[in-house]
Design a protein around this nucleic acid. Sequence first.
DNA 1: GATACCGGTATCCTTTAGGATAGTAGTATC
DNA 2: GATACTACTATCCTAAAGGATACCGGTATC
Lengths: 131, 131
Amino acid sequence: MNNGKIIHNKEACNAAVNAVRDTLYVVNGKWKLLMLVSLMTGPKRFKELQRDLENITPKVLSKELRDLELNGFIKRTVYDTTPVTVIYERTEYANSLSNVINEMREWGLKHREHIKQMSRDEAEARKAVVV
Amino acid sequence: MNNGKIIHNKEACNAAVNAVRDTLYVVNGKWKLLMLVSLMTGPKRFKELQRDLENITPKVLSKELRDLELNGFIKRTVYDTTPVTVIYERTEYANSLSNVINEMREWGLKHREHIKQMSRDEAEARKAVVV
DNA sequence: GATACCGGTATCCTTTAGGATAGTAGTATC
DNA sequence: GATACTACTATCCTAAAGGATACCGGTATC
């Protein structure tokens, strides 16, 4: 447990800033990571993804899928049925992001609890003042 | 080693999507995580941060600092010197993001290697074709 | 007296992300 | 024959993020 203070010198700090910047550059935006999470349950079709990620419009979904494919995170396969079936699935390279995603998932859960606790504390404080 | 395939059912998947979405909402943008990384070496003043994060304009820096303070990730302290000294430092709650940041840092480093390796492979392939 | 530092704010502007809506070809279903 | 599904694309538009530039009061330095 180092409480996150692993960086002690300027060079290491700059290297860390650059590495995080690179990551942010690749997985930027509201959707990319969510799509990779959604694809963890298995390959999905376009409309399935659209239903899973409520409120994503087809234009945006299509663009994000292209981005993810270009970066090698997903694979697009067209099956020659009638009408065509298109499935999207995570590549193995997408698995390299698992740790990042898991930590973000866990932090999101803890943060929600944190917020709840804070508003509970606040309510207590108000009550104490009134009484 | 589960290769990131820890999510097997729809409810867990939706919960994960929501948790990651929450995290993304809080640490969104180009700067917030980078600022927290930069503050790992210790408290810093406004101009120091501005120099550290090349290309951030004072307006944006000031806004991001306010956001981070509102979310409880940093503490702003004004010292009554002449002229005033203002320092920003990470709070303990910022440490809760350490795992996320570390994973992003490591992924960024590995990704850069990955890209390099890919372009080396590509160069080899081209050479093979020419010969 | 000119310039520079500090910690910003003010104003304006560009770029990007993202959303709304409509439409496409080719089935299949009612 | 009308409607619905799939996997999108096209067009238009809004909102937000982010950047450029200038400036402020106060001090210190040259």
